[in-house]
Amino acid sequence: MSKTMNLTLHVWRQKGGTDIGGFETYKAPEISEHMSFLEMLDVVNERLLADGKEPIAFDSDCREGICGMCGLVINGVPHGPNAATTTCQLHMRHFNDGDEITIEPWRAAAFPVLRDLVVDRGAFDRIIQAGGYVSVNAGSAPEANGLPVAKPDADRAMDAAACIGCGACVAACPNASAMLFVAAKAAHLGLLPQGQPERYERVKKMVAQMDAEGFGHCSNHYECMAACPKEISVDFIARLNRDLMRATVVERDHEEKSGGAG
């Protein structure tokens, strides 16, 4: 038969962005080892609701580790103790009866808390909007096999593209830096021939936006890579640094000339 456990949770509660917030302690009795961490919180929430209290707000959506919506700092580690695992895929069998669990939101100025454990990661969207794309309109694409891509490049691009944008890298970094996220996206597109025309402009714009959002700098602790549920490598950060140097030191600034057709 499956094991059950009694837990004590210390959870960050905060009513809204302007509220000060603080920790609340909750008992979580008779938790099945087969539950996911978020299902454990669901159970706690159902009980809070039954008692007429407001449930703990936390983000989650797909609950299969791919959408990147969930993310809690569990006992001091983003996404909890298991490597390569999102919060939604963490199961209670990795905890023991009597455990005390501290649950906190991602902490970064660029990720303001909206409520309880829910943060605003709009900064990541704005970084992508600044240049994290290939400029190609629907309908204008050439034949897909017209341009071969070396398999190692395609595979490495896929390694970088596996990023789910959850923000654990920022949460884990002692400086709250977003370098791993930015580096992964820049590498994904920069490794493919389709991404070459805009490669250096893209890097400049994304880095400028990253800085404007108020993330910290990278000081090579590599906590990001340890926390990343998709195990994205810091090698991509070296690549980003290289591309930015080339973009700002070697490449010419692009200047648009006026005047249209005809």
Partner: peptide, 21 residues
């Protein structure tokens, strides 16, 4: 057309050793 569009956007589809899809 979808495949053409997605490849142009940089979707990293699986490839064979010759570099084709």
């Amino acid at each position: 057309n979808i495949i053409d569009q997605c490849v142009a956007q940089g979707v990293p589809f699986a490839r064979e050793y010759g570099g084709l899809l």
